[in-house]
Design a protein around this nucleic acid. Structure first.
Length: 265
DNA sequence: AGCCAGTTGCGCGTACTTTC
DNA sequence: GAAAGTACGCGCAACTGGCT
């Protein structure tokens, strides 16, 4: 089954690009670059300064005519890889950037960044409420109850969310660990992944890949975001296309899994 | 103080189904 | 067959709080 099968199709609607309109005119809210930015942020690279990515990328394209990309620092090679994925994913973008002034390149970056940031905000917003249904113990509510529209009492402040967010390898049920996490005495680093990423809450220090990203919660969130909210746990009743079909997405990307895991967290 | 990402509530447009 | 209803994606302005 492909990722699109749960949503109906709609004809795509691509308008004129921002470059053709010039950088100073008011940007249409449905600018195709903004729309593309939404999808690119979700599936390739979420947190990025796009104007910089584009200006650096164009510059580097000239540089690598003399120096092979392998000679660049790892961080720059990585950035260039994202840049090329962006070029590959949007026909005509390279020509637009090459022909455009510096100002126009920055504007394109702003549009893509606006899309990525907008999608991120929207996803956070809609997931915030839905996720409570997925983490609720079967047949009973969350105790004490959590608000659907506020996250103030989540995180390590609540036993349920705390147990899910607890770094893999630590024991949330150990009172000292719980207190250290709640008081921020124990700072959680980016490489201490939360246990909710693991299937059935089971983390094996000997085999940290076992069960990673295989939790049902992540599948729910993925479907919520990419097929449609109603496709998560029932027959989808969406009458319009979900994000996957809107953007011609046929398969899961590694980055999109990371994106969803980040949003769930 | 200014910047920025995150968050919020609201409204709009679209594509479709249901009802009259 | 027109009107009403539904479930989406998306944009926007206003706000908050952390960081520099």
């Amino acid at each position: 089954m492909t990722i699109q099968e749960t949503t109906p199709s709609v004809p795509s609607k691509r308008g004129s690009s921002a470059l053709q309109m010039g950088p100073h005119k008011k940007v249409s809210s449905s600018d195709p670059l903004v729309s593309h930015g939404r999808h690119f942020g979700r599936t390739v690279f979420a947190l990025c300064n796009y104007p910089s990515l584009l200006t650096n990328g164009i510059l580097r394209l000239e540089q690598i005519e003399d120096f092979p990309l392998e000679d660049f620092p790892a961080e720059e090679r990585r950035e260039h890889c994202v840049f090329e994925q962006l070029l590959d994913s949007y026909p005509g973008l390279l020509e637009q950037l090459k022909d455009g002034s510096e100002e126009e390149i920055l504007h394109v970056g702003e549009l893509i960044g606006k899309g990525a940031a907008g999608a991120r905000g929207d996803d956070t917003k809609t997931l915030k409420s839905a996720i409570l249904d997925w983490i609720s113990p079967k047949g009973e509510g969350i105790r004490p109850p959590l608000h659907r529209n506020s996250k103030i009492d989540r995180g390590f402040n609540h036993d349920l969310t705390g147990s899910l967010l607890c770094p893999a390898g630590l024991d949330w049920n150990d009172p000292q660990t719980k207190e250290n996490l709640q008081s921020s005495e124990m700072m959680v680093c980016g490489d201490q992944w939360p246990v909710f990423l693991y299937a059935h809450h089971i983390y094996d220090p000997e085999d940290p890949w076992c069960g990673l990203l295989r939790r049902r919660l992540l599948v729910y969130a993925y479907k919520h975001m990419f097929t449609s909210p109603s496709s998560v746990d029932r027959e989808p009743k969406a009458m319009r296309s979900g994000n996957a079909r809107l953007h011609g997405m046929n398969s899961v990307t590694i980055a999109s899994l990371a994106y969803i895991a980040t949003q769930v967290r």
